[in-house]
């Protein structure tokens, strides 16, 4: 099965890659969009004073 990797996806904000699999006829059999990034704002915003979030989350 032929495989096309688009790594990284460009001209957007964030990280991503796409893996495309082609069947014997050159048609797309399946495609996977992957986000190879996590920073965990959901977790580390815990414990911060609520008014400070206005200064923390603009950096998402």
């Amino acid at each position: 099965m032929k495989r096309i990797s688009i790594d990284p996806i460009t001209r957007l904000e964030g990280h991503g890659k796409i893996e495309i699999f082609l069947d014997g006829n050159g048609e797309v059999a399946n495609a996977y969009f992957q986000v190879p990034e996590l920073r965990g704002f959901e977790k580390f915003c815990q414990g911060r004073p609520v008014e400070e979030l206005a200064r923390i989350v603009p950096r998402i």
Partner: peptide, 22 residues
């Protein structure tokens, strides 16, 4: 930087929270 505030937590607790508890 700010993403390094995550160093106050271990990786597993971040993954648990983000993918199971939010």
């Amino acid at each position: 930087g700010i993403p390094a505030l995550a160093n106050l937590f271990d990786a597993q607790s971040i993954l648990d929270y983000v993918y199971h508890k939010t």
